[in-house]
């Protein structure tokens, strides 16, 4: 095994370890854990087998295999980021509503206390 592959394997291995650790700690919700687990596994598969990337690249008509890697990587990150923006927007909306409810309920509570 050459050094490049060893480094790639070590890197992808640590990503997988990080993801598993985050899930174990409960810091990564199940909803996202599947996405990142799959991603880590794909990265490992690509690191282990150089043939895999070459085969796929040539099959789709790309003659410089690493560029396929960059293309897919960028597309993946782009989609994940759009997904996060959607989640963020939804969360903003929820916090917004919650803040309003808190304000209104606090007033109601204070009014009740005054009556008693």
């Amino acid at each position: 095994m050459d050094v490049t592959r060893l480094v790639a394997l070590l890197l992808s291995g640590s990503i997988l370890t990080l993801v598993i650790w985050l899930i174990r700690e409960g810091r990564l919700r199940e909803k996202y854990s599947l996405l990142w687990l799959c991603t880590s596994l794909i990265i490992i598969a690509l690191a282990v087998s150089r043939r895999l990337l070459e085969t796929v690249a040539i099959a789709v008509g790309i003659y410089y295999p690493p560029s396929l890697l960059f293309l897919l990587g960028m597309l993946f990150l782009l989609l994940v980021n759009i997904g996060f923006s959607v989640t963020l927007s939804r969360l903003t909306q929820s916090t917004h509503k919650l803040a309003q409810e808190v304000a209104l309920l606090k007033k109601e509570l204070e009014d009740h206390k005054k009556c008693d």
Binding site: H96, A99, Q100, V102, A103, L104, K106, K107
Partner: peptide
């Protein structure tokens, strides 16, 4: 004056809406 306080800044729209919700309820 009766008042409500947002726990953090929501912007003018959020403030008006809080008032509208209070009015409706």
């Amino acid at each position: 004056a009766p008042h409500v306080s947002h726990p953090f800044n929501l912007g003018i729209g959020g403030s008006v809406q809080t008032g509208l919700k209070h009015a409706l309820r």
